[in-house]
């Protein structure tokens, strides 16, 4: 009876360890969120969905309006490419390349009318983001907030 109990306890502890330690050897998928934002000098408007982002942007830019145009979420495996459609026939391609420490290396490619505008490789901190901006759109400029977590 005592032997049976000891075996049971060992078995349950193994299950517990497996459940808790499982993520250690699980393959890392990278969760990506891409927010397309229109920044302009028009009437003052701060999109409530961008509250934390606009606070940061205001410390650098002098735009009075920040409007969220679209939000895309994806989960990508290493070397898997995700595509996001952006305004004016632009496309953003994202490919996680590798994880180094607390950063994920991302290949970002922006195309306009199927022609590559640029490509960059950047190492993004876990639970952090990079803002890519510059294209003129309507009465302002486009900003793409790309955040990653793994």
């Amino acid at each position: 009876m005592m032997r049976f109990k000891k075996l049971n306890i060992s078995f349950l502890l193994l299950i517990l360890m497996g459940v808790l330690a499982g993520p250690l050897w699980a393959e890392h998928n990278t969760k990506i969120v891409v927010k397309a934002v229109l920044a302009s000098q028009g009437s003052e408007y701060m999109d409530p969905r961008l509250s934390s982002l606009t606070e940061e942007l205001q410390s650098v830019f002098r735009y009075s309006s920040y409007r969220l145009l679209s939000e895309n979420r994806m989960e990508l495996a290493m070397r898997e490419t995700g595509t996001v459609s952006l305004p004016e026939d632009r496309v953003l391609k994202i490919t996680p390349l590798q994880i180094t420490g607390n950063r994920v290396e991302l290949l970002l490619v922006i195309l306009k009318k199927k022609k590559e505008v640029f490509q960059t490789v950047s190492q993004l901190l876990n639970h952090s983001s990079i803002i890519v901006g510059g294209p003129k759109y309507k009465d302002g400029y486009l900003l793409f907030n790309i955040s990653a977590s793994f």
């Binding site: 490509q119 490789v121 190492q123 993004l124 901190l125």
Partner: peptide, 14 residues
């Protein structure tokens, strides 16, 4: 938050 390792493209400035 991000370290830019490389940049390649046909842009006027960056």
């Amino acid at each position: 938050s991000a370290i830019i390792n490389s940049f390649k493209g046909d842009v006027a400035s960056v």
